[in-house]
Design a protein around this nucleic acid. Structure first.
Lengths: 227, 227
DNA sequence: TTAGAACACAAGTATCTACTTGCATAGGGA
DNA sequence: TCCCTATGCAAGTAGATACTTGTGTTCTAA
């Protein structure tokens, strides 16, 4: 009557790792961690997530691969840390747009688009991190929130112009605006300097031309429903 | 006076491979090759390019990994063969739209979009193959041509409505339309069945609302230039 | 009928890359 | 000064996966 022959695997996958999240860092350590993040950002930006190796990040930072794992548990954690940072930073900037409410619809949406384009140009690695990298749940949540901030900004502006527009319709149009934005952004990232300015104008046109009929053609059946 | 001590590496990487492009196929071989392509399409569609292993393709086709390499030199060649097939097939369909020239601008562009959405729904693996897979030069060319067919279709329709529009402007607007299309298509691929219909309408709206002002607001400076 | 070519696969190999181990040094609080 | 902990790395390991080798089987053309 052997009931508990094997007691060992109390926890199936003992996560043995040199990385300790509770470890106390000294000044040198803090600097290393930041340097590793900067190095990772540079390499992710050059090669994209999948082509980037942890060895390349370590080399870029001027440390050995083993040292990298003193500061991050794995590759995904590095991408997640960067993606979270950027997503929060970008959401912050978007929320600050027209905090005084002085811009009209076109100006506000144009400003939103400009801000997002500027951010993506300043952080070229942001795109691959958000699009291609597998992220931790926390980073995924930050990414989701970022998208929501964009959508809500547009939805709020639509309803401010046209209060009879239902919440769900407004959100839907915000989502479509985001899709348009992303579609053009993909090309913007690889466009030649000459093509870029033209594409930036096209970006504004594409989003605004999609949205403005929502406000003007408001009598067409489905377009207006009360919440 | 040793001049040519090492003669061996006449060609640095002797590409030794069991695959022979000139091999004559019998009926069984042809069927195997087609079955492997079908299996690859299924697995690529389920897992995406990078997550798909050649072993998984072989298993899906019910053959051993070694057999797969009798018919294709490497993984990329499988993706390239499928991508080329699909790109040519889709370009063909696009070129056949309104061959009699009876549709007006809105109808023609709407039909173009519908055709492309239908194709992507019929071949879900097409997206990952064209977006994520590294392709052979030949397949890349087929992909480029496919994009050009879309752009040229729209450019030609724009200039048919507004002959004073310059060729380069028309092509530019065609390109932007393609970016918008792709941006929304990305979401369409993962949308719930309920959201799909609404997104399909949004797709038409987004592209047409971007394009129609090109025809109507033709007095605004840059918009019209002679070729 | 038979030889050569095409088909098929079990059992590998080669390589790449995320991640560890074991040990040595630096640093700061007691 | 002493000791504990953080930092650092050379030299690995482990596991995944694209691709091969060697060998036997089936087809087909002469």
């Amino acid at each position: 009557m052997q009931v508990f022959t094997y007691m060992i695997p109390f926890c199936e996958n003992p996560p043995v790792s040199v990385f300790d999240p509770n470890r106390k860092r000294n000044a040198r350590g803090e600097q290393r961690q930041q340097a590793l993040l900067r190095a990772a950002a540079a390499v992710f930006g050059r090669l994209g997530y999948h082509e980037t190796t942890t060895n390349a990040i370590a080399t870029e930072a001027g440390v050995s691969p083993a040292t990298l794992y003193q500061f991050f548990p794995n590759k995904e954690a590095i991408a997640s840390a960067l993606a979270s940072m950027y997503a929060r930073e970008m959401a912050e900037v978007e929320r600050a747009i027209d905090s005084e409410g002085v811009l009209d619809f076109t100006e506000a949406v144009g400003e939103l688009i400009d801000v997002c384009m500027r951010f993506n140009r300043k952080r070229p690695e942001f795109h691959t991190l958000v699009v291609n990298a597998p992220l931790s749940p926390a980073a995924r949540e930050d990414k989701r929130v970022l998208g929501q901030v964009f959508v809500d900004f547009i939805a709020a502006r639509l309803r401010r112009e046209l209060p009879t527009l239902s919440r769900s319709e407004a959100v839907h149009h915000g989502q479509v605006a985001l899709m348009i934005f992303r579609g053009i952004l993909d090309e913007l990232a690889v466009a030649s300097p000459h093509a870029r300015q033209r594409l930036q104008q096209a970006m504004r046109n594409a989003v605004l031309r999609y949205l403005t009929p929502v406000l003007t053609e408001s009598k067409t059946g489905r377009a207006v429903r009360s919440a």
